[in-house]
């Protein structure tokens, strides 16, 4: 479970400060598929960065499964993120000079998983997203939808409980976007928590819950 209590994020120094988040409180349950929506500059990506441990909050508390992540040191926070949180990006963030297989096994290599185990997990993950026959292909040989599936397979392969998706359908057409949302829904049904930032209201409706953020605050 993710618990966010009155988090504030300020950018800049004392002379020129920007409040990206102005006191957000939020609880996300395990296995939930949550969509975060809001206009540009509302603080959605900042919130995602904080949940994903890519950024630190200025004030407040951020707790994940009894661990007070906001009070961890930098290195411990990185370690926590590695073992609990995976990302799916808008532009897929695949390494174009590595095959789909090599892209999916990246988080496993980072975790130090053995070769044989890696192979098993990678192929299983690719199979779940329907991309097992494309494991030798390079990203530039795949369509946008296929690349995003590979990216999701990578997030799955890491085995992490929380999957953060930053505009996962932003670079895709409607049909492919729907396919991706369905994949994310299936992942959530298996017990993982999926948090998705999106501009697309039509797709956001498929989430279990939609959270609207505006001007650094949750719009109730």
């Amino acid at each position: 479970m993710i618990r966010i209590k009155d988090i504030v994020k300020i950018y800049g120094d004392k002379e020129c400060q920007t409040y990206a988040l102005k006191g957000i409180s939020l609880d996300i349950n395990d296995g939930e598929f949550v969509a975060i929506m809001g206009p540009s500059g509302s603080g959605k990506s900042t919130l995602l960065n904080i949940i994903g441990c890519m950024d630190v909050l200025t004030e407040g508390e951020f707790i994940v499964d009894e661990t007070i992540v906001s009070s961890l040191t930098n290195s411990k926070r990185q370690e926590f993120a590695k073992n609990n949180i995976s990302f799916v990006f808008q532009d897929f963030a695949l390494m174009n000079d590595y095959t789909s297989y090599e892209n999916v096994e990246l988080p496993l290599r980072i975790k130090g998983v053995s070769g044989r185990e890696r192979k098993k997990i990678v192929l299983e993950s690719l199979d779940k997203v329907g991309m097992s026959e494309f494991y030798k292909k390079y990203p530039n040989k795949l369509s946008g939808g296929q690349q995003q599936r590979v990216a999701i397979a990578r997030a799955l392969a890491s085995g992490n409980k929380y999957i953060l998706a930053d505009e996962p359908t932003g670079a895709l057409d409607r049909e492919n976007g729907m396919e991706i949302i369905n994949v994310l829904k299936d992942i959530a049904k298996e017990g993982r928590t999926v948090i998705m930032v999106t501009h697309n209201e039509e797709l956001a409706k498929f989430a279990d819950r939609i959270i609207y953020i505006e001007d650094g605050l949750i719009n109730q």
Partner: peptide, 16 residues
């Protein structure tokens, strides 16, 4: 740098 950013997003440390 892009590759490094991707690796970082999956928990790779600077040393790794």
């Amino acid at each position: 740098l892009r590759e490094c950013a991707i690796r970082k997003s999956f928990g790779a440390t600077y040393d790794m």
